[in-house]
Amino acid sequence: MSAYLGLAMSLLVAVAGVAGLYALHRLNAVANNPLISKPFASGWIPEQHALSRYHARYYPVTLIFLAFDVEMLFMYPWAVVVARLGASAVIEMFVFLGVLMAGVLWAWREGAFKWA
């Protein structure tokens, strides 16, 4: 319980520190109200809003990442008990990881990690 108290305190202190900086900024800035500017576009007026459906070309990588990321859910509990469970736990986990890694190699051969 007190561990979470410490975390909450840390959050509080950090946020308070940031708030203090904001206050200091408010006191010392040459003006307090934000200047509403056009975004920088090499001296032009932007022709349209930048916020748009962005073409993230690494999209295939995100899927592979997701597979491994879900695997991490098992990895942390496994790390705690592997020494107790012995060789079978190691073999099972690394067979699983091996399968995932085979998927990565296949994706690599398909050019998923290359773009542009």
Binding site: K38, I45, P46, E47, Q48, H49, A50, L51, S52, R53
Partner: peptide
């Protein structure tokens, strides 16, 4: 918004 059109 802000006098700038959305992306095409």
């Amino acid at each position: 918004p802000g006098g700038i059109p959305l992306a095409g």
